[in-house]
Computed example of a mutant assay.
Amino acid sequence: MTTTPEHDERIAKMTFASVYSQYVAKVEKKGGTKEELHEVISWLTGFNELKLQQFIEEKATFKSFFQQATLHPNAHLIKGVICGYRIEAIETPLTQQVRYLDKLVDELAKRRKMETILRIK
């Protein structure tokens, strides 16, 4: 699935901090915790809480955030539709990685089992 260059550029320039607070609100509204959110983000990116806080304080862009991430080997198992895009068909790597994170947060907010969210076989 092709996204527009404008869409990809907008995502690349978006700061992790601006979206992080929305992730927290979404998860907590549905009865989840910030700790669970951090577990999911850590699984996908390899970042610990200290590193996440650093990205928030620095107002790091998603481009910078994912350039420094070590994606989990099972990240490719994250499939489905998010924001009208089929994740596995997104051709731009950064946009796909951001949508991976969005999908994991959605699953957490829907109170799916952590084993399912973390693609544990």
Rank of each mutant, 00 (worst) to 15 (best):
E115R: 10
I117C: 12
M114Q: 13
D102E: 11
A89R: 11
V98Y: 02
G84M: 06
P73D: 04
K59T: 12
D102I: 00
T95I: 01
E115F: 11
Q96M: 03
E107V: 01
L52M: 07
K103Y: 07
Q96W: 03
E58Q: 15
E57A: 12
R99A: 10
Q54N: 15
L77R: 15
E49D: 14
L118T: 07
H76C: 05
I78Y: 03
E107H: 14
Q97G: 03
E49P: 13
R111Y: 13
L71I: 01
I78L: 03
E88K: 08
T92Y: 06
T95H: 05
L94R: 01
T92D: 15
N48E: 10
D102P: 02
L101R: 04
E49H: 14
Q68W: 09
R86S: 14
P73I: 00
L50F: 12
A69M: 00
E57V: 08
V98P: 01
K79F: 03
E58C: 09
P93F: 09
E88P: 08
T116S: 11
Q67E: 15
F62G: 00
N74D: 11
D106A: 08
T92M: 07
F55R: 00
P93H: 14
Q54S: 15
H72V: 03
Q53N: 05
R86F: 08
H76V: 13
F55D: 01
L52N: 01
I78W: 01
E58H: 09
E58Y: 04
E91D: 14
R119N: 12
E91Q: 13
N48A: 03
A75P: 04
M114G: 14
H76F: 12
G84L: 12
N48Q: 08
E58W: 04
K51M: 12
H72C: 03
C83S: 10
L77A: 11
K63E: 15
R111N: 14
L118C: 14
E58D: 12
L118H: 06
L118K: 07
R86E: 11
K110C: 08
T61V: 05
L94S: 05
Q53G: 02
G84K: 08
K79M: 13
I87S: 01
F66P: 01
I90Y: 06
T95A: 09
N74F: 09
K113I: 04
E91G: 14
Q54Y: 08
E88W: 06
R111C: 06
Q67P: 02
R99E: 06
K59G: 14
N74M: 10
D106P: 06
E107N: 04
L77P: 02
K79T: 13
K103F: 07
L104Q: 06
E91M: 08
